[in-house]
Design a protein around this nucleic acid. Structure first.
Length: 194
DNA sequence: AAAGTTCACAACCGCAGTAAC
DNA sequence: AGTTACTGCGGTTGTGAACTT
């Protein structure tokens, strides 16, 4: 699950942290506090760069950090805050006690992104549908969106790449995905959605 | 059972902001 | 005012586990 430990050309260790390294860092920080991340690894007897130590401490070793087990409240809060602030992970994490920006970011990408995209697409579709009153306009729009789905389905489409599609995926869902991608990328395929 | 694919997440990289000199 | 060093942030990558074919 994590990168295997290795040494770079400068003899600095990288990759997954061992239990022993964690203990050394924790012990040093508890004893002397946080003062200079560049110096801490030297004094703690670690072959790591300061940046790596800082990340390890901030995200996993800090005593107040909790891992996993996100409840619904937290999920909703992340979604709301992301809607409001965008990818300001440190800002979002600050509102969630015990959560780190890295963890929130990972959680959003793996669990909440799909929900967020779907929600946005539903809203966009609702708005568009409410603007088309006649039946012919509605069916015309449906055709248009289905056409966009074909145009937008390329390997470079990040939304589609990140969203698994089953054979049962409806045309509407596909349209939603392409719609979202278009709006996000200023419509690469040249079909603009206003 | 083996091979291929997707998921989950720890860790790295590069950049920007800021403080110190 | 310019340069350097340090820190923090967000994007991205690497890889083992889990799942599917």
């Amino acid at each position: 699950m994590v990168r295997a430990p290795y040494f770079d050309k400068n003899g600095v260790k990288k990759g997954a942290w061992s239990r022993e390294e964690d203990d050394k860092l924790r012990e040093h920080v508890e004893k002397y506090g946080l003062w200079n991340w560049r110096e801490i690894p030297k004094f703690a007897g670690l072959s790591r760069c300061g940046k790596s130590c800082r990340l390890r401490w901030m995200n996993y070793l800090r005593p107040d950090v909790k891992h996993g087990n996100y409840n619904e409240e937290e999920e909703d809060l992340i979604l709301k805050l992301h809607e409001k602030h965008g990818n300001k992970w440190s800002l979002i994490a600050a509102k969630l006690p015990g959560r780190t920006d890295n963890e929130v970011k990972n959680y959003w990408h793996t669990h909440l992104k799909k929900r967020s995209v779907k929600k946005q697409n539903t809203l966009v579709l609702k708005e568009k549908c409410s603007g088309h009153t006649s039946e012919s306009e509605g069916s015309q729009m449906k055709k248009e969106m289905e056409a966009r789905t074909v145009v937008s389905y390329t390997p470079s489409n990040p939304i589609l790449e990140s969203t698994p599609l089953s054979p049962e995926t409806s045309c509407n869902e596909l349209s939603n995905l392409s719609t979202d991608f278009c709006s996000k990328t200023s419509c690469v395929s040249g079909l603009k959605l206003e």
